[in-house]
């Protein structure tokens, strides 16, 4: 029964084949457009590649390694650019010349604000920032120069800056580098 059905199906397709062929021929301009776009990309030095944002970099002879799930989360530094805004109140940016006034704003608060600005939350303890940040201590810090670092808090959860974790090396002294 199945071969008969298949044969009948083929016969119907034979009758429809001129329409199908005409449809394919009408699609030829799309091929020209796709070819032109591909050649233009190649000319700009970005030849069309199968790689997508969902593909891990491949090493020769090895299976692709997952990045987004199993690999350690990228450090905070990976997320911060020179124009990254880390404090919506003061509209500050962080770079090598960033100066955070500790008397008016907690730098821990400032940096944690960054995490809740819609960026992916790292699953592991972030590494230190490779940028020189100077702090102006407030009076309380000056009166207790040996005050210990803030105790670590639980892993960051989206919900507000007050729940954010403290970064290692925060509030440890005067004019200190966070590294």
């Amino acid at each position: 029964m199945k071969p008969v059905k298949s044969l009948l199906y083929d016969l119907v397709l034979v009758l429809l084949s001129p329409l199908y062929l005409a449809g394919l021929i009408l699609g030829l301009p799309y091929l020209v457009w796709r070819w032109t776009a591909g050649i233009a990309q190649t000319a700009r030095g970005h030849a069309p590649s199968y790689e997508t944002e969902f593909d891990a970099p491949r090493e020769y002879g090895k299976n692709p390694t997952p990045q987004r799930i199993d690999d350690p989360a990228p450090s905070l530094q990976a997320y911060i650019r020179n124009d990254t805004q880390i404090n919506s109140t003061y509209n500050t940016t962080i770079d090598n010349s960033t100066h955070i006034d500790n008397s008016t704003d907690s730098h821990a608060q400032t940096i944690n604000n960054y995490y809740f600005a819609g960026q992916p939350v790292p699953t592991q303890e972030p590494k230190a920032i490779d940028a020189t940040v100077t702090f102006t201590p407030d009076e309380a810090t000056l009166s207790h120069p040996q005050s210990p670092a803030l105790p670590p808090e639980p892993a960051p959860q989206i919900g507000g800056p007050e729940q954010a974790p403290a970064l290692p090396g925060q509030v440890e002294g005067h004019d200190q580098e966070v590294r």
Binding site: V32, R34, W35, P48, T52, F54
Partner: peptide, 19 residues
């Protein structure tokens, strides 16, 4: 998104010389 991208690249590679 990934499948459409790869499909378009496959189409380009198939017609790159033929067209």
């Amino acid at each position: 998104a990934a499948a459409n991208h790869k499909s378009q690249v496959a189409l380009f590679r198939a017609i790159r010389l033929t067209l």
